[in-house]
Amino acid sequence: MKLIRLIFLFLATAWLTGCASPQLPIALEDTMWSERDKTIGVAVVELPKPSVQLTGNQGLLDLAINTGLASGLRSKVETWELASMESVPQHLVDELNARGYKAKTLPPLKLADFKESGAKLGYAKHDFTPLRQQQVDKLILITLYVAGTQRSYYSVIPTSDPLTQVGGMTQVIDLTDNRLAFYEPFATVRAADGEWDEGPEYPNLTNAFYQALDESEQNILAPFRAQMLTAQ
């Protein structure tokens, strides 16, 4: 499972950056905690709908067949909720405010509302500096780019059971110049505990998804919690 997660993280980073050189993780800067006069905004990018992903070596006909056979699972996966991820910014803001920092939640952001910056590595891919008009100096931005299940195939033959997946990235962006003060992809892949193919409700797979979602949320919060404690 650890190898699968590493592969998933690599593919996720490649997906996020396209053909360009991937942005490597950036450790959270200490200035985050020394500049108490700065206002920190926390937001999520509008969340995707949970989906079923079919990966592997498949022709168009293979994909059509596999998609049809996965229709029952898809019907269930599309009912999975991401409401707890939407509440992560408020949790983080509450913890920041409790420790004496100035922080506030922002409404979910649409990337289409922000111009692509064309910036080099070390800077956000979109220009978020207009958010300074909302009296925000630094932006903690949580992006979820995939949620649901993935299953690999060779032609019409499954080569794995469905695995639940939650993946994205967390950034801290200095709105003075759009520079990244923190960058960390996250990915959680979890198998069902027991039989997965128990339609139409798929209870074991559903439980695995919400465990993966919770683990991802804790991974998002952990770097901030750890440094807040040591910065006191």
Rank of each mutant, 00 (worst) to 15 (best):
Thr79Val: 05
Gln135Tyr: 02
Pro162Tyr: 09
Leu139Thr: 01
Val156Gln: 00
Gly167Ser: 12
Pro89Asn: 07
Ala27Gln: 09
Met228Pro: 14
Ser152Ile: 04
Gly168Ala: 06
Gln227Trp: 04
Asn207Thr: 13
Ile7Gly: 07
Asp37Ala: 11
Ile26Tyr: 12
Thr31Lys: 13
Asp193Thr: 01
Lys104Ala: 04
Val52Ile: 13
Pro50Arg: 02
Val189Asp: 01
Met169Ile: 10
Glu35Cys: 10
Tyr123Asp: 14
Thr164Asp: 02
Leu221His: 04
Gln218Gly: 12
Lys138Thr: 15
Phe10Trp: 14
Tyr101Ala: 11
Val189Tyr: 14
Glu95Asn: 09
Trp80Arg: 02
Gly72Arg: 07
Val156Leu: 13
Pro158Ile: 07
Pro22Thr: 12
Thr164Cys: 03
Gln135Phe: 01
Ala43Val: 12
Ala119Val: 00
Gly56Gln: 10
Gln135Asp: 03
Ala231Trp: 03
Leu144Ser: 01
Ser75Pro: 06
Ala231Ser: 14
Ser160Gln: 00
Thr67Met: 05
Thr39His: 12
Pro185Ala: 04
Gly72Trp: 12
Tyr154Lys: 10
Glu29Ala: 09
Ala27Thr: 14
Ser21Met: 09
Glu195Leu: 04
Gly122Lys: 13
Ile4Ser: 09
Glu81Ser: 01
Glu184Lys: 14
Gln227Val: 04
Arg132Asp: 10
Thr188Asn: 00
Val93Glu: 08
Ala14Thr: 12
Val146Phe: 15
Leu163Lys: 05
Trp80Phe: 15
Leu9Arg: 14
Glu195Val: 15
Asn204Trp: 03
Met32Ala: 08
Ala187Ser: 12
Lys125Cys: 03
Leu69Lys: 07
Leu69Ala: 07
Asp113His: 07
Leu180Pro: 02
Ser71Tyr: 06
Arg179Asp: 04
Thr164Arg: 00
Ile40Ala: 00
Gly72Pro: 01
Leu47Ile: 03
Phe209Met: 03
